[in-house]
Nucleic acid binder design. Structure first.
Lengths: 356, 356
DNA sequence: TAGTACAATGTAAACGCTTACAGTAAACGC
DNA sequence: GCGTTTACTGTAAGCGTTTACATTGTACTA
């Protein structure tokens, strides 16, 4: 990777000198009032005389005052912020999810903080998570990105949590939001068999920790069985919802002459990897190998041929997660388990009539 | 969008009852020591007797104690966290950037908090930003997502800030990181003219607020001029770095019979939109219309034909941004302006010999 | 054995804010 | 003219930590 450093026209570098930043006390002194009055003005609680307000605003400007949100949070025991913990894979899907969350929060006083990680978080000997009661009023957690024990701990502390794409840990009643995986996957595989006449269908799974992947695999196996096809374990590839891994797996299959006539990738990312491996090997899609995915990510329809997949309402998940979290925050009753419907999107990559 | 609510087997909903959460004081009392000792143990400062430590850890477990990071931040004036403010467009590119940031921070005590927005943030009458000194030790800001006045305010307060893909505001010395836009774009357009023999090259721009887009456009214009081609203003389309917008613009062009033989999209997202519009209209790429982008996002090589574009080192930006921010945080001198090199990636969509 | 060093702990003052409570003066009702 | 409201403001106690400083007892030095 080429790296070029260029200094701007004024070549000298410079240090930023730390000033003693103004606090509410400085503002109060400068305006000749007490801190309580400043606080009241800034929070719109109680009334403040017009002339006083002017003096205070003036002081704020003079001193470059910015309220310290953490001190605020400490004092009011409330942050007006929700947290989201997500992996750094499944990009398009995640963006839709985050958009759903942001849009739902748009007209409220809340904002969102996001933490990205691929290693499950846990609280060890009292050390806080990057997102917790200190900076948020509740969190939305993707899959297994916070470990079960920690989730139970948070639940015991009464900290609002919503789980995405998994079941609650044992002995826990944390609310979960899932897609309707099984039926959709079953229908998709059935479509491949019935409408596209495929017999040797391979499956590309995601992480073992993903219940989504597991359910899709279960449905795949059942569909094969129900249609009198045997399931060859060699035709189940271990992926991780990443493009590159999927690409390698399919390259391996091709190299070993696996001879599949269709690939069901557990998500569109992996379908994209498979897509590329097939193309590189000169295979035609869908003539030689049919290809289908799951999620209906934005780019999927732009592939050529466009990808047959299952539409999973990511934005909707964001919306639902926020509603559920808010209910918890406001101490309203919440449903434990929400399942969002999915829908088959037949395009061209599966080699049969398209429906859109 | 179909929405299905299903309650889990136990149908009753339930409220989480808020317990009075344990504080360090509770832990101290429970273990029969002072809060100072607990704090010392948890932070590994000073020494604590083995037996005492055991008692304290036990108390922590008993009480489900979790340290309150905000109180901590207040007391130590340090958060061990950096903030990143990004838009919700340009997805793949952003993911690479965030990965660069995360990877750089991996072995440090720091973690990252992300805020996603499309409306520039500003501090009005002392109200803090979602990311600021209360929860981070410095922030990385994408493009114009924080307004100039606020940036100057932060600079005056001595709060570390690194700007991405823009120049510093007037009267400011905040460090900026940019791509080498002009030369790369110039080379790309030149390639289209010389090697692919195109004459009617259209340009799809991003937001007007984007200096990247502006520079790429400047280079486009200059390249046309330098090769004796006139620039038709109708061939410059207003995009916003989004797939759909680009798709519509190109559809409009096609509908109006603009008759271009090449399209230079200011980023790969828009190239993807153009790609789809062309295909829908039955245009062949590159035979009828050559297509090139900027960024070299992950999916670009998977399009068929694979997209000719300019590789922009997104991961490297993350790395550089973090280093620069850390230097500021540690009060070390920093460079004002860093320009990262870019590189032409000739694939097939431009209709000339490929180099990879 | 007196003196010193050090390990282990406690005390209490920050950190920057909010807010319950109390106080004052002017305006009001009758 | 007196009691009552109302608008405005101040005082001070938290919120949950960290940490400088003080204190104690014990082990070591000479």
């Amino acid at each position: 990777m080429v790296k070029v450093y260029k200094m701007s026209s004024d070549l000298q570098t410079q240090q930023i000198e730390r000033t003693n930043n103004a606090t509410i006390e400085d503002v109060a002194r400068h305006a000749g009032v007490s801190t309580a009055t400043v606080s009241r003005l800034l929070n719109g609680k109680g009334n403040v005389a017009e002339t006083t307000a002017v003096r205070i605003y003036h002081a704020i400007e003079q001193l470059n005052y910015v309220a310290h949100a953490a001190a605020r949070g400490l004092a009011r025991q409330k942050n007006y912020t929700i947290g989201v913990i997500v992996p750094d894979t499944s990009t398009y899907f995640l963006v839709s999810l985050l958009r759903g969350i942001n849009e739902t929060l748009e007209d409220t006083a809340y904002s969102t903080l996001i933490f990205v990680t691929n290693n499950p978080l846990s609280i060890k000997s009292g050390q806080p998570l990057p997102l917790g009661e200190h900076n948020t009023d509740g969190i939305i957690v993707f899959n297994r990105l916070v470990n079960d024990e920690t989730l139970r701990l948070l639940e015991r502390r009464g900290f609002p949590v919503v789980l995405l794409f998994r079941q609650p840990p044992a002995n826990s009643y944390l609310p979960c939001i899932n897609f309707e995986n099984y039926q959709a996957a079953y229908d998709l595989v059935t479509h491949l068999i019935h409408n596209s006449g495929r017999r040797r269908i391979a499956f590309l799974r995601g992480q073992v920790s993903s219940s989504d992947s597991q359910l899709r695999e279960d449905a795949y196996r059942q569909a094969l069985q129900d249609h009198g096809l045997s399931c060859d374990e060699n035709m189940i590839g271990r992926g991780d919802f990443r493009v590159q891994t999927a690409e390698q797996v399919v390259q391996g299959w091709l190299h070993n002459g696996l001879g599949m006539d269709a690939i069901f990738a557990a998500d569109d990312n992996m379908a994209m990897g498979a897509f590329n491996a097939l193309r590189q090997a000169g295979k035609r899609i869908p003539e030689d190998v049919a290809l289908v995915g799951f999620n209906d990510d934005l780019p999927s329809r732009y592939l050529s041929p466009p990808l047959t997949t299952i539409h999973a309402p990511a934005v909707e998940v964001g919306y639902t997660a926020v509603s559920t979290l808010m209910a918890q925050i406001d101490q309203r009753p919440i449903p434990h388990n929400i399942v969002l419907g999915t829908r088959l999107v037949i395009r061209e990559s599966c080699g049969s009539h398209k429906n859109e």
